[in-house]
Structures are given as C-alpha cells and as structure tokens.
C-alpha cells in the first residue's frame, strides 16, 4: 500500500489549493493588491423590491406520465405517479418554475457569497428542486436520498462541465460554480427522465416562480434593472424596471403558448 508521506503531501497540496482559492474572491478588474474584496451592502433605508407574476396564455399541455418502470426502486421511491414538469401551469394560467433574475444594472458591485449552501436533492428519482439559482462561489450541496445510484451531470458551457456518481447512502457532494451562467441544464446520466436547471449569478438577485406564478426579488439597491425571465420550454423575456430607495416595482410576464 502507498506509504503515508506521499499521501499526506498530496493532501497538503489539495488543502493549500483549496485555501488559496477561497481567498481569491477578487472580481476581474478589481485592484490586484486588494487583500479582500469590498462587498457592496444595501443601505438599510434604501432596499427596494421587484415582484411580479409569470403567466402562460394558450392551450395547457396535457399531463405526460413519466415511465420509471425500468428501475422499480425508482417507482417505489417516487411515491405515486410522476408527471413531466417541463411546463407547469395552474388553473388560472400561472406559470411555475420560471427563473427570474436581474440581468443587468448591478455592474461594479461585488456581493458577498452566502455561507449557506444551496441543496439539490435526488429524491424519488427526481431532482428537487427542478429550477434553482445559486451565486458564484456558493456551495451546491448534492444529496442522494434514493435507494439507487445517481450520476448528476450539470452540462455547463461556461463553467466546467462535470458528472459524478452518487450511490445510496453516500455523503453529500459539495461543488461550486466559478462563473455566472444562466441556465445550466442538469441531467442524471443513469435515469433519462431526470432534469433540473441551475442559474448561476454573481449577486443574490434571482427567484423562481412558485405554483401561483409569483416571484419576489428583494433587498435591491435603488436603480434601473433589466429583469429577465427564463422558462425551459418557453424561452426568455425581459423588461426594464426602475426602483427608488425603498421602492416597489412590478414586472409581470406573459408567455404565449402555441
């Protein structure tokens, strides 16, 4: 078996690399000598909010049953029938699982990376949540709650593409994205019906519409922003909003179906 010294050396190198990566949170263009970036803080008397509803007009797609029968353990773990969730519209035409985010208007500001991870769970042979946002450098915690092996595969184009196997009972994986990228499609290399989408931004101004189609982006500094919405089947839209100190603005979007 391998002697200890070499093993420890490798470990030490890995740890060192990890440390230097953590310290180096400078944004491109920032003064290179700066020891730590100056994080932008939204003044307590200025925080604005943008809310809205995402709607869908058109024929509601028929429910499509997902066939997991090739993996009986998945059928059991899913507890009930699984339906395609690529277009989820409620009775009132509200569109869920749309990713809404500030596309521009925050240039020159650097935001602190949240210490709490964002979790994606493989549960019932399904990615939960399906649509999610995360900040650059924030930890993505990948959990497998299933009794089967999954292989999570974020098909990133700007960030590093990777895939990793995670067996039943394996500890969570901790991964980070290093660059903004909207959106990264995620699949499971083993179960073809499993899909998720991750939006990576270098600020905390994003939301996912709920079952009622609504979203809220809060704690915004006053300013003029391009608010964009992305939906996996319907594409993207954007509109401009301006909010003053403690301002409230509404940005509603309607996608038209075929």
């Amino acid at each position: 078996m391998r002697p200890f010294p070499l093993f420890n050396l490798c470990l030490a190198i890995t740890l060192l690399a990890g440390c230097s990566g953590k310290v180096n949170t400078e944004q491109p263009g920032a003064a290179k000598s700066a020891p730590a970036p100056l994080y932008f803080k939204v003044g307590p008397g200025t925080a604005a909010v943008v809310t809205g509803t995402i709607r869908y007009q058109g024929k509601k797609p028929a429910l499509k049953l997902i066939d997991m029968s090739e993996e009986p353990a998945c059928v059991e773990a899913h507890h009930g029938k699984a339906y395609d969730e690529s277009l989820v519209v409620n009775k009132k035409g509200a569109l869920a699982n749309a990713f809404v985010y500030v596309k521009s208007g925050l240039q020159g500001k650097t935001f602190e990376i949240p210490a709490t991870p964002v979790t994606i769970d493989q549960s019932g042979c399904w990615f939960r949540p399906r649509v999610m946002g995360i900040q650059v450098g924030q930890v993505l915690k990948v959990v497998n709650s299933d009794p089967v092996t999954h292989n999570i595969h974020p098909m990133a184009q700007i960030n590093r593409e990777w895939n990793h196997s995670q067996g039943a009972g394996d500890p969570p994986l901790a991964r980070k994205f290093t660059k903004p990228e909207v959106m990264i499609p995620v699949k499971c290399n083993i179960h073809s019906w499993m899909h998720a989408f991750i939006g990576v931004l270098d600020y905390p101004y994003f939301a996912v519409s709920g079952d009622d189609g609504t979203f809220e982006i809060k704690n915004l500094p006053p300013g003029t922003y391009a608010i964009a919405v992305w939906q996996e089947k319907l594409g993207t839209q954007e509109q401009q909003v301006t909010v003053g100190p403690l301002g409230k603005a509404e940005a509603n979007f309607t996608f038209k179906g075929k």
Partner: peptide, 10 residues
C-alpha cells in the same frame, strides 16, 4: 454497474 452506466466521475 450503475457507476459505469453513469460514465464514472469526470
């Protein structure tokens, strides 16, 4: 078998 079906770890 599942590990290899998934394409290992990149």
């Amino acid at each position: 078998v599942a590990f290899y079906a998934g394409g290992g770890d990149s």
